[in-house]
Amino acid sequence: MTSDTPGTTRPGGRTARNTAAVLEATLDELGEHGYAGLTVERVSARSGVHKATVYRRWGGVEGLLSAALEWSTTHPWEPERTGALHTDLLALNTTVLHGFTEAPEGSVSAASVAAAFSSPRVAEALRAFMTDRHARAAVLVTEAVARGEVPDGTDPVEVVRSAVAPVYYRLFVSREPVTREDLDLAARVAADAAAGGSFVPRS
Rank of each mutant, 00 (worst) to 15 (best):
L27Y: 07
T131K: 13
V113I: 14
S72K: 15
L171Q: 12
P6L: 06
E78G: 07
R56S: 15
A21Q: 12
L126A: 12
A125C: 12
A116Y: 00
G37C: 02
P151Q: 10
A135N: 14
V159W: 10
L126T: 05
H50G: 14
R121E: 15
G153Q: 04
R161W: 04
A125E: 05
G12E: 03
F199L: 13
E124Y: 07
T9H: 12
S119L: 06
T19A: 13
P120E: 09
D192N: 13
S44N: 11
L126G: 03
G63W: 02
S112R: 01
P177S: 10
R121G: 15
A163W: 02
A111T: 01
A115K: 07
T95Q: 03
T131P: 02
S118T: 10
T82S: 15
L27A: 06
A144H: 09
A137E: 10
Y55M: 14
T2M: 13
P79C: 04
R57D: 14
T9L: 07
A138R: 08
D182I: 01
G99Y: 02
N93Q: 04
S162P: 02
A137G: 07
V200I: 07
H33G: 00
G34C: 04
G12M: 03
A36E: 15
V139E: 05
R170D: 13
R57W: 12
G153F: 09
S66I: 00
E143D: 15
V178F: 02
D182R: 03
A123Q: 12
R202F: 05
F100D: 00
S198W: 13
G31Y: 01
E181C: 00
D28H: 12
Y55P: 08
S119Q: 06
T179W: 05
S174C: 10
D4W: 05
V145C: 09
V200A: 04
R17W: 10
F117K: 10
G7C: 14
D152P: 01
V43Q: 11
